[in-house]
């Protein structure tokens, strides 16, 4: 932890970050940017959850888009087909996805490495096929229309600015809960599992329970983000939740830096905004993604944030002429 002192305490960082989110819209000149920020916030919520699983606990998921999609579709279907209010949709989405993740997680998280990657990937693809095929519910490949706008206890989020603040509060809440978890006995157990499963278990850590637990938590985060997405777009379609999106989520976490919540937010911001701001980028988007993944993993396996930090510190050391300390 070699961050500047003011972010050394995660709670100080949290306050600073929240303040920044609150004033950010005042600095924007264009409403379009607000739209991008909303997407960044939604993606950041998923990325934080995935980072708890991948970065902290060392368990990969190549199917997280499915949980995001399930959250979006559950509330979307309830809203469009049964006119349920968003809050009810949220409860059903979180509970439903939580239960599903628990049931899937028990056999899945017994697997390691490639097998785990493949199982989560297979799960993601199957879920996406159901989005496409259950057209009486989901509207099929062309998507589900008619999802109601976000209304919470009678308050309507009818402008981008209002929605932005809803996403901010959601992100801040997710962030705070995650910081708490990471800083606790649970967070230590998760990192211990990452370090050595066998050593964790001889110290009494129930490895499979914690793995499934964090899998469920990260799936629930993704479903929560899906809920925000669904009522913002008022339209969802299967292609938003495909294998590529799962990969994009992993990329966010990896780029930010594995095992850093701030890194996950940074990664989400970078990967969401890059294609939006660089129109020329679109054609090369996947190519550049691939290149980023490879280079970051080879040269900065700890992520861009820490990689740059290390490089700067190394530079400073060289300049000061004491490159030999360490």
């Amino acid at each position: 932890m070699r961050f500047p002192p003011f972010v050394r305490s995660p709670y100080a960082g949290f306050l600073l970050f929240s303040g920044m989110l609150a004033v950010l819209p005042l600095l924007l000149t264009n409403d379009y940017y607000l739209n991008v920020l909303i997407f960044i916030g939604i993606h950041a919520i998923i990325a934080i959850g995935l980072d708890l699983l991948l970065g902290y606990t060392g368990q990969i998921s190549l199917g997280h888009a499915a949980f995001f999609g399930l959250g979006a579709y559950i509330t979307g279907v309830l809203s469009a087909k049964a006119s349920w209010p968003p809050i009810a949709g949220l409860v059903v989405a979180l509970v439903g996805v939580g239960i599903l993740a628990y049931v899937i997680g028990i056999p899945t998280l017994k697997l390691h490495g490639h097998y785990l990657a493949m199982a989560t990937l297979g799960f993601g693809i199957i879920v996406q096929i159901f989005f496409k095929e259950l057209d009486f519910l989901t509207g099929g490949p062309s998507g589900l229309v008619g999802i109601e706008d976000m209304v919470i206890f009678g308050y309507e989020f009818d402008s981008d600015l209002k929605y932005y603040y809803l996403v901010c509060v959601s992100l801040a809440l997710t962030l705070l809960l995650s910081i708490n978890v990471v800083q606790s006995r649970v967070g230590r157990a998760l990192r211990a599992i990452h370090g050595s499963e066998v050593a964790s278990s001889v110290l009494g850590v129930n490895v499979s329970r914690y793995k499934v637990g964090i899998f469920v938590l990260s799936a629930v985060y993704a479903a929560f983000a899906g809920w925000l997405y669904s009522h913002y777009m008022t339209f969802v379609s299967p292609s938003s939740f495909d294998f590529m999106f799962s990969i994009k989520l992993v990329t966010m976490v990896v780029i930010g830096s594995l095992g850093s919540i701030w890194g996950a937010i940074f990664g989400a911001a970078l990967l969401t905004s890059l294609p939006e701001f660089l129109y020329v980028f679109e054609k090369y988007e996947t190519t550049v993604f691939g290149l980023i993944l490879i280079t970051v993993m080879i040269f900065m396996p700890k992520g861009l944030l820490r990689g740059v930090e290390d490089a700067v510190l190394a530079g400073v050391r060289v300049v000061r002429g004491k490159g030999d300390d360490k």
């Binding site: 990192r191 370090g195 050595s196």
Partner: peptide
Amino acid sequence: QLFADMTVLENVMVGMHCMSKGG
């Protein structure tokens, strides 16, 4: 089989896993 990325103190704190119960 140390938890190589965690601090010395954190390693010992994981040792106290069974002596605590925050879920």
